[in-house]
Design a protein around this nucleic acid. Sequence first.
RNA 1: GGAGAGGUGGCGGAGUGGUUGAACGCACCGGUCUUGAAAACCGGCAAGGUCGAGAGACCUUCGAGGGUUCGAAUCCCUCCCUCUCCGCCA
Length: 441
Amino acid sequence: MFDPKLLRTAEGLEMVRGNLARRGVVLDVARCSHLEQRRKKLQVEADELRNRRNTKSKAIGKTKASGQDIQPLLEEVAGLKSDLEKNESELGEVQTELESLLLGLPNLLHESVPDGSDEDDNLELRRWGQIRDFDFEPRDHVELGLLDFEAGAKLSGARFVVMRGDVARLHRALIQYMLNMHVEEHGYTEVYAPYLVGPRALQGTGQLPKFREDLFAVKGDKELYLIPTAEVPITNLVAGKLLEASDLPIKMAAHTPCFRSEAGAHGKDTRGMIRQHQFEKVELVHIVRAEDSHDALEQLTGHAEIVLQRLGLPYRVMALCSGDVGAAAARTYDLEVWMPGQSGTQDGGGSPVKGRYREISSCSNCTDYQARRMGARYRPEAGKKQTVPVHTLNGSGVAAGRCLIAILENYQQADGGVLVPDVLRSYMGSDRIPAAEACVG
RNA sequence: GGAGAGGUGGCGGAGUGGUUGAACGCACCGGUCUUGAAAACCGGCAAGGUCGAGAGACCUUCGAGGGUUCGAAUCCCUCCCUCUCCGCCA
């Protein structure tokens, strides 16, 4: 959530309303200011009542100690009790309502975010790499026959896959390669964390209360959810902490599976391995000082880009528009990798073109939004009292499943085999994945 | 699964109904000393909120939530978590 104090002044409210409107979110200004006024009035009254009660109770203690009669004081204080109870229950209601309203609102957008309503309005910032010119018709990763979607479906239904042999190994190699790079070269601490988390963690990063339907919940006596991204357990490692400025930045990298219900994506990307209920990802998380977060986003995005560069995969960097930035983020860069086998029509012209850029990493600056929700703060100046929320960032570095199919499609050979990118050969022990049986001839 | 112990400030750790928001130590900040640093010594130091120009005043918070009481870190109940021992087990 953003700073609740912003809802306490007319200027603040107007600023918030205007900012949220860019996302297409309508803020009920009247309701906010009404709730806020009630909150203030009730809170001041409650404080006053408690003050009187406390003062009298202390007097009782003293009077009793000096051996005098406390009966008159007891009578005085009796009346306060019911007033206070009534006031407190009302205040509780108002606070609960305000809090749930606040928890349901997205982060404020950074001024640099381009206006737009959906992904079509995202702004391309730059491209890297040379798109390969095929001397044969490139297949998509499904046609290469190296992935067993039927087996996945047999076990678990749609949007699951089974990999075997060289492909399974390539997938694992990718993960090892990425994680090693970030730890050894980019200064991240490797973290292993739970794949099942409770509701508090999910509220901290922003998936709850609003996006429950995107999650897989586990049946059992505990309320647990499969993580949709390592961002959830990793970022929440600083939940409830008061850090020193000298502790920051904290940079963590983790490889985890991710589980997503894809509830809102029926019929979308049903072919192939693009959109799965379960996929692997190497996630990068930064916990930084407030003034550093915009630089950190550039750095984090750069770390994800290097992965694609070393793998020789062409990509472009997109600045997400106001309608496409996720709820927790103030600003997001997506990395989209070139997939020559995907059908697309995006290169103008009208006639279908083979090949398409697909999201492979999403790097976000969540500013203080998650930090406030999870109570993660730091002291800007050692020895001083002031504390402020940390800024949190996360990004995929990168999604392993999509990266795998990008390699399959970009490095495919005429015979249906796939060349292994140079940097992965030592992990693979070979430079080539042979064509699947069905593809040969 | 059985038996027991415990959750207190940034950290460690006292505190069992009333001027205790909480001793003490560490860390941190300021100062003295020193050519400089360290050590030593002196002083300061919980967070969140409301009001206030400010000094400051007040409220809340001792795992979470209820309860008892004029008054709860302290007593009672429920839940969560941690630790120790035994059993079981990857």
